[in-house]
Amino acid sequence: MEISNFKIDFKEFLEIDSIEELNSETIFRQLDEFDSFFVLTTIAFIDEMFSMKLTAEDFEKIITIDDLINFIGEEKINSL
């Protein structure tokens, strides 16, 4: 999966409508859609797509989509 497609899929999974696209400048916590479900939905997305566990502590360090990509690993995303 290309990184650009990953960003689109993640945006759709979270049903983020307030912005056109997720980029390096998009701070998750500043989005209109950010709430406790945002965290749970991200955990579900990572579990479903990559069978990876994202803890509450891990999420504290995830500020933008780039941090999420780094957490998963570009290679893992590309190989999907």
Partner: peptide, 25 residues
């Protein structure tokens, strides 16, 4: 707490993301 919620140590505390992780695992 997160998202503007407040409590004290006399009250129930739940770490939602960790409970979710435990469940799906």
């Amino acid at each position: 707490l997160k998202n503007g919620n407040m409590n004290t140590n006399n009250d129930l505390y739940m770490n939602g993301p960790e409970i979710f992780n435990f469940t799906i695992e």
